[in-house]
Design a protein around this nucleic acid. Structure first.
Lengths: 352, 352
DNA sequence: CTGAAAGCGCTAACAG
DNA sequence: CTGTTAGCGCTTTCAG
């Protein structure tokens, strides 16, 4: 048994025992000095503090967490991290979590076959979890949540008894369609796959509704991915078609940017020949003058972090098994941003 | 003591004891079944597995980590997370870390006064740490590293005995300057603060050197931040000046984009009146035709994750206190990307 | 105000 | 092949 400490050639790690010995007190006193100094007499406190100092002691999080029964950390699960959208959500999340003094664990499932396993592992390292989009099945979420793990869903269809935060899609989708109708367009296309994301489904639904109100049959979606490359492919398809739409509404900015770029390369004028719109309001959208819808991505992440923290703290505050507060739902507003890519406007209407 | 379990109203958490009891075996057997099933007889294994199933048991990471003496997680420290540069580094890092089956903790220090404290806390939660840019003082790094924590530095000046990965600045900076000289420009400006980042210092040095070789005095840097807003301010300053430079080289793309935008708004033609260049090759740079330098940001993060993993595993493999391998240094190559913003070129020279 | 000791949940000798 | 048991490092009663 004496061999053990040697054979496990782990990082040294000063322990509370060494500090205690050096200060000539018990480990309990060391612990107290660190956590509630006022409970320790000044002379003892001083001895301990100097021992801590001398040894450069930092308490082991593992030991502490195991004893306390909490991690003081929470996690966020993304489908992947490609593109500015997720980066912004993460930014908002990390900032809020840091303010709440909680460590942040992240995981991108990337459609891996063992995604569920990874998420469950992550769940074992945190006091609560934010889960975005298409990452794990509803059942897994229900199960984790039922087992007592606080969970907040983001940009995902709600699951019973679990908090959910999303951004508005249908209403603003309708506004976008309406705006394009005012331009006089009558032939539309939609680039994106409603089946691959509830957000896209909402956008498409809002658009389709508004078009129908105007007596126009909603176009079948041109199903594609979410990146610039997908936009390129849509462009190729459009260029080959017999009749072209007057306006293409894209599921997000990246598709719109890819589409617009290829069209322009092919000598098609945007917006004169074809109008193009996006969704998200990425930095690039501003620079190339893309009409789009602004989404509060940072706020999405920040709110999720705070809600999760609420759940975590209210859980540990709960005396007995009082029933937890009902699941919350929140839909953050989005905003139509008119720029050049949807057609020419009188000066005042346009944005910066 | 019996009260304890009740008063600590923690998440239930099935333990290995309950599984053992239900399966009618010892906890050791449960542990074995989970970790090395082949050491357990098939019938016993089956009993345990069904108990695990029935109880939905997931071993506590805390218990496991404490016993194993490792976290199976590593962390990365950013100065902040704003902008595509850090997002890309993180993306590369997360992907590589996930492949290596390690959890990822992130922290953005954001110039907080308690940054050091936060980093030390993080250090207690991981087996190793990647540290970027201006986040913690050299002494803290030295101390952590000396205490046995594997550390890899990224985009930061080296510290003795610590691995460092950076991207090339001086050489490509020289190429950029040379290219602009070929355009015939003789009056230059540099927007960025070499004192706020070793990367910027390298870029400026490379540029200044090359200009001097051409008998041109290097311009004093126009010191500014790293974001679009900083570019706006530089534009204002340039517009007010008596004599304008023919070309402005910016410390990064965001400054260049902000600068270019304001110049164009003010009726200055880019590149005809003033050429503008950036650094990083963000997505937007491609769309607006900004001449810049491509940096392998994902690779930066990915390589850091792998190097860190090497250190962590070689450490636990070390039988005794064999001296660790010498610190590694790596400088990833960067690449000049010529587009419209630096002036007109013959068609072939230009990029997509 | 301080110390002894019982866990927290798991792993890994060691002994059967 | 399986059970017993000693930790891993810390917090927190409970006595003194």
């Amino acid at each position: 048994m004496a061999m053990k400490a040697l054979s496990r050639s782990r990082r040294s790690g000063v322990t509370i025992y060494e500090v205690a010995r050096r200060a000539g007190v018990s480990i309990a006193t060391v612990s107290r000095t660190l956590r509630e100094p006022e409970l320790v007499s000044p002379p003892t406190r001083a001895k301990v503090q100097s021992a801590v100092e001398a040894l450069g002691f930092t308490p082991s999080r593992l030991g502490r967490s195991l004893a306390e029964g909490r991690h003081a950390a929470n996690g966020i699960v993304f489908p992947h991290l490609v593109g500015p959208y997720y980066a912004e959500v993460l930014l908002g999340y990390e900032e809020a979590a840091a303010d709440l003094r909680r460590s942040v664990l992240i995981l991108a499932t990337r459609d891996r076959p063992d995604a569920t396993e990874q998420v469950l592992d992550l769940a074992g390292r945190v006091d609560g979890l934010v889960i975005m989009g298409r990452t794990v099945a509803d059942e897994v979420i229900t199960e984790m949540s039922a087992s007592g793990l606080p969970v907040v869903l983001v940009a995902r269809l709600p699951v019973p008894n679990v908090d959910t935060i999303r951004t508005e899609n249908e209403g603003t989708g309708g506004q976008l369609a309406e705006h394009l109708l005012r331009h006089g367009y009558r032939r539309f296309a939609f680039a994106g796959d409603p089946d691959r994301s509830p957000d896209v489904a909402g956008r498409y639904a809002g658009i389709a509704n508004r078009l129908r109100m105007a007596g126009i049959r909603a176009p079948a979606p041109i199903r594609c991915g979410f990146d610039i490359e997908a936009g390129h492919m849509v462009a190729v398809r459009l260029l080959k078609a017999r009749t072209r739409p007057q306006a293409v509404m894209c599921a997000n900015d990246e598709v719109a940017l890819g589409l617009r770029h290829r069209l322009i390369e092919a000598g098609v004028d945007v917006p004169y020949d074809i109008a193009v719109t996006g969704w998200d309001d990425l930095m690039t959208a501003r620079f190339v003058g893309l009409t789009t819808v602004r989404q509060p991505m940072r706020e999405l992440g920040g709110t999720a972090a705070r809600w999760l923290h609420d759940r975590v703290t209210q859980q540990s505050a709960d005396q007995d098994d009082r029933p937890p507060p009902a699941a919350r739902r929140l839909v953050l507003p989005t905003q139509l941003v008119i720029r050049r890519s949807c057609g020419t406007h009188p000066r005042e209407e346009q944005e910066q």
